[in-house]
Amino acid sequence: MSSKILIIDDELDIVSMVKMRLEANNYTVISAFNGLEGLEKVKNEKPDLIILDIMMPKMDGFTFVQELKKNSEGKKIPIIILSVKDKMQDIFKMEGVQDYVIKPFVAEMLLERIRKYIR
């Protein structure tokens, strides 16, 4: 059974590109476009890994992680952050985040990060 990845990002183009790339690498991919939707999807679909954008409407990445950590199941899911270079310091202040990739990124880099945390 292939691993399930949830990607949360408000940029539709990026989501569809990443989805295609990851599916070509045998991952199952589900998506959400803001933090609120993301939390719903985590509850219903129980992904093995979350790829998370920081800047999103309705609920941003920081808030999403805080909310996710309140749930004992959600806490365990590894998170990779998609970020722009100058938000790096804020990201390091976050707890519960495993790794990060800086936008714009090369698909191979993201895949490499993913393989560190799930099969």
């Binding site: 940029e11 590109m17 790339r21 070509a24 270079k85 936008k103 990124f105």
Partner: peptide
């Protein structure tokens, strides 16, 4: 930087796909 790089990256990735 972000405004220039992101559309370019998306386009390049699309082409690669």
């Amino acid at each position: 930087s972000h405004g220039l790089r992101t559309p370019l990256a998306v386009t390049l990735e699309g082409l690669s796909i």
